[in-house]
Computed example of a mutant assay.
Amino acid sequence: MKIWFITGASRGFGALITAQALAKGDAVVATARNSKAITERFGEHPNLLPVTLDVTSQEQATAAAKTAIERFGRIDVLLNNAGFGLMGAVEEASPAEIEAVYKTNVFGLLNVTRAILPFMRQVRSGRILNISSIGGYRGAAGFGVYSSTKFAVEGLSEALHDELAPLGIHVTVVEPGYFRTDFLDASSLTSSSHIIADYEATAGKVRTLATSLSHNQPGDPNKLAQVLIDFADAPHPPVRLPLGSDTVSAIEDKHRKDAAILAEWRAISVSTDFITR
């Protein structure tokens, strides 16, 4: 039996993975801003520990980790899932909007990870799954600020992977594409209130497309949940796990474009080194 610690567990991927983990016989420390939302969704279960956690609070993260250890004795899998999106051109985003998305998506992930790592290091075991996005691998108009938070998650995850591998702790950044959840709804995706007409053909177009795509996304969230449940047993997990055909296509396209940049600009790129004689 594995012990999962899942943030943002009351809905979306977090709720689906919580349900499948419990069905498998694992135990779950399921966290949300209001633990009543966990109880309302899953009811009473001997392997479920609902915990109130605002990931932006280091104090709450530390308390939640301690509560989990007191109940189950260990944490085998940390799933950093809590987060939300911000849609709009970079210039349209207000300082308050930018700060809010960073506090949850980046600093929240750091708060929870730093609270749980001492317990994983003590036993030289554990897995950390950090939910990123297709937007964490390539930026796109209309999602610049959100993508920048997920780029941060990618960088943190790669560094953590190298730092923790010698200690028996595996870290993987998960990169979902567009899955049929409520991510494009107002409950998970905020839109900058300030609109600049000059961005109508770029960020403005994305706003329209997001509305039409909501609940018509190509990815099946139940399949993603099952993949991650099974992935927790993978003997040699990779540093990143792309999920969704759209993510795979986006990564392949970026690789082609980056290869073209290197081919065209290689002479300039390498010309900046000191010349050794």
Rank of each mutant, 00 (worst) to 15 (best):
S249N: 12
P237V: 09
V106P: 02
R266K: 14
E154A: 10
K36M: 07
A259K: 14
P166C: 07
S193F: 01
A232P: 07
L160K: 06
L117W: 01
L22G: 07
R33P: 02
A96I: 08
G126F: 02
D185I: 02
S157T: 05
G8M: 04
D182P: 04
A197F: 05
P237T: 10
K150C: 03
R41G: 00
I268H: 12
A260M: 11
A64T: 08
K205W: 06
A140Q: 12
S249R: 14
H236N: 15
F5N: 01
S188G: 14
A82C: 08
K103L: 12
N111T: 09
S35E: 14
G177R: 04
A23G: 07
I275M: 09
V145G: 00
G126I: 03
V51H: 01
A263C: 06
D230A: 14
D162T: 10
P221L: 08
P166N: 08
A9M: 09
E163I: 07
R180F: 00
K2M: 13
I169N: 04
F119M: 06
V77E: 00
I17L: 15
V173W: 00
Q217G: 06
T52C: 01
Y146V: 01
A263Q: 15
P46C: 06
K223G: 01
R256D: 10
L16K: 10
I275T: 15
F143C: 01
T190I: 05
V112I: 10
R127A: 02
H161C: 08
V174N: 01
R240V: 03
I98T: 13
